[in-house]
Design a protein around this nucleic acid. Structure first.
Lengths: 195, 195
DNA sequence: CATTTACACTAGCGCTTGCTTGGTTAGCCT
DNA sequence: AGGCTAACCAAGCAAGCGCTAGTGTAAATG
């Protein structure tokens, strides 16, 4: 009936779906609502996606994929200093949380509605992202920038960052860059570290 | 038809509902599933609750109420030191996240499914809890224990703590007490602060 | 003893859900 | 010109949804 293609139309539909999933939640979003927002009829939806589940999976995949590539890019454009790398990661995380906000909110709040196969597939993507964080945090620990257990610190930091979707207003006083600095300032050993 | 009573039976039903809401999500949990898990028929459910929404509200209210009273109790049993108070709050938060885990997970992930009236009512409870945190964090800042903006630090810390429901295994290496210490150790200025 | 109350049951109404079916249209390739 | 295909539509099915109405019953209350 349909294909698992990667057409620009599909991209557009995924964006629309992400917004609706955030507004209403996955379960409350009906295929009819999705279709209406996309400007088609509900039957036509199943030309683009096998079923409703696949839409959810596509939304989350896109968001996580973007987060990963933005993080890699941020690290690549960054000199070797552990503090600079840590800052770049935090800033990249906050920026993708803004630009792909809908997709990330869906990933955070609708993860459990994925079926087992999708959860497994997307889990690997997410693990890759978290491992990147653990490397950067591990380096910061070795450099004496912060203190604690590598895994614990990674989880605390990711928790603090992901929680920002609940309260962060990009029109407010803090830019993603400034917010990243505030977070690292809160964590770090004092600015002047002994030689 | 029914009352808004506070019977022990109702308590039990709320506990069962919380577990089901975590397992399946609020929208996917049908009144028939709830009834079956409670050992009654679906029609009987509406003797105890006006509608499905009221069950969700009751679950979250119980969890938030417990968190508040546990936090107050922890602060009361604590000498006046800012660090001790901070530790007590973090530990209390982690403990209520364990003992009332289901209710808190529901509060975190199903908040948006509340109707406006319930969201308003429960919002006040939650605000009271967050304000308690802001006071304790404000004191810790004044004592030079940690650095940063009061509101920012509060949000970062609450984010880190709430995120633990995703990964924390109480059977693992860390007790709530130890985990609270790790968090504060990560934040704090070094143990020996310059005079 | 009569009445009320609390709790549970059976039966089902009216509606919405995800998804299928069978068919049409417009543009592209040869 | 003829054929292929991606994209869409109208109509509707079977299942499941929240919730209601009306009834039964055992214990508490007057």
């Amino acid at each position: 009936m349909n294909v698992v293609n990667n057409s620009p139309r599909r991209r557009e539909l995924i964006r629309v779906a992400a917004q609706l999933f955030v507004q209403e939640g996955f379960d409350r979003t009906t295929v009819r609502m999705l279709a209406q927002e996309m400007g088609i009829k509900s039957g036509s939806l199943f030309h683009h996606f096998r079923d409703k589940q696949e839409i959810l999976c596509a939304v989350i995949e896109e968001g996580t994929h973007n987060a990963l590539s933005i993080a890699h890019e941020a690290l690549a454009q960054c000199d070797g200093g552990a503090e600079a790398r840590l800052h770049a990661m935090a800033r990249a995380h906050l920026e993708t949380l803004l630009t792909d906000r809908n997709a990330h909110v869906v990933a955070l709040y609708e993860w459990r509605r994925l079926d087992e196969a999708s959860r497994d597939h997307l889990g690997h993507l997410r693990d890759a992202y978290e491992q990147l964080w653990q490397e950067v945090i591990g380096d910061a620990l070795e450099a004496g920038l912060i203190r604690g257990d590598k895994f614990l610190v990674s989880r605390f930091v990711l928790g603090a960052l992901n929680w920002t979707v609940r309260w962060y207003d990009p029109a407010g006083a803090y830019s993603p860059d400034a917010l990243a600095s505030e977070l690292i300032g809160m964590l770090g050993a004092p600015a002047a570290t002994p030689a």
